[in-house]
């Protein structure tokens, strides 16, 4: 089902059913459409444009449905005036929403393969629905490894779900942070250091990576060195976005419009431009 969009530039009202505090600067909104009774359809990896009344609009990845949260979940980090306004929302408030937009993780093309999921910071948000899609048909995939890196322990999101993911769905989870004080019993180091710590067969592996460009660059390099094929590595790109439908021109990255050709790309499709300064 596609959400009925009368005009692709006009938001639909959504109700905040639940405001979920994730970390000191990150929160999730559990949203329901105000006017539409249908269920919300989206592909893992897609995003929406969220509108805060009078302030503006921002692209936000869809991070669920997830257990205990039944609507459309959007996980947001407070980094600017729109996200700060969204942070002020309370249960029952209204937001404007357009979408979902953009490309999705190609889950159905991953059958029978080992899956390496690499997330940096809030990059875990658009990967969570991908993980749940993998869990839905767990037997269709080989090893699944989640390698998750963040700045510090207090920046980690969705940590209360990791145990279930490991125990119920048999996936390997390696969490690492860039820096921690001595209270932290987990791993310290960049996310790529977790790659050799999990089991997967590089020759038969599909990778999904979402995080800052530099983190993705190093991750791709490591995976390639191990023998993961370029066309099986999927990355997400971020650029300024105003319209989300290919009209405003802001999100161009080489020949791609990140809003409609991305945000998820097969690495070999964008590698010519990936890492070029100010592209």
């Amino acid at each position: 089902m596609k959400l009925p969009i009368s005009d692709p530039m006009t938001p639909e009202p959504y109700i905040v059913k639940q405001f979920i505090r994730e970390t000191h600067d990150t929160f999730s909104l559990d949203l329901f459409p105000k006017n539409i009774s249908d269920s919300i359809a989206f592909q893992p990896g897609q995003f929406t444009m969220l509108y805060a009344f009078g302030v503006g609009e921002v692209p936000i990845s869809i991070s669920g449905p997830a257990p205990m949260q039944s609507g459309l979940i959007q996980t947001i980090r407070k980094v600017g005036k729109v996200t700060e306004a969204l942070d002020q929302l309370k249960n029952g408030d209204t937001v404007g929403l357009r979408g979902p937009f953009g490309s999705a993780w190609p889950i159905s093309a991953m059958k029978k393969r080992d899956i390496v999921v690499m997330a940096g910071g809030i990059g875990l948000a658009p990967l969570r629905p991908a993980l749940y899609a993998l869990f839905d048909q767990r037997d269709n995939f080989g090893e699944i490894a989640l390698l998750y890196g963040a700045r510090s322990p207090k920046d980690l999101i969705f940590t209360n779900e990791f145990k279930t993911w490991q125990e119920k769905f048999g996936i390997q989870v390696k969490v690492t942070v860039d820096t921690a004080d001595s209270d932290w019993r987990g791993n310290v180091g960049v996310v790529t250091t977790s790659i050799p710590r999990v089991d997967f067969d590089p020759k038969n592996t599909v990778a999904m990576i979402c995080g800052p460009e530099i983190m993705m660059k190093y991750s791709v390099a490591e995976l390639k060195q191990l023998g993961v094929k370029e066309d099986r590595i999927h990355i997400t790109m971020e650029r300024n976005m105003k319209c989300a439908i290919g009209f405003c021109g802001h999100c161009q990255f080489g020949p791609a419009f990140i809003c409609k050709d991305g945000p998820i790309f097969q690495y070999n499709q964008v590698k010519h431009f990936f890492g070029i300064r100010e592209i």
Binding site: T179, S182, G189
Partner: peptide, 11 residues
């Protein structure tokens, strides 16, 4: 507080 800069593990 002491800061951990790296952890090393199995292998």
């Amino acid at each position: 507080k002491p800061v951990t800069v790296q952890t090393v593990t199995d292998g």
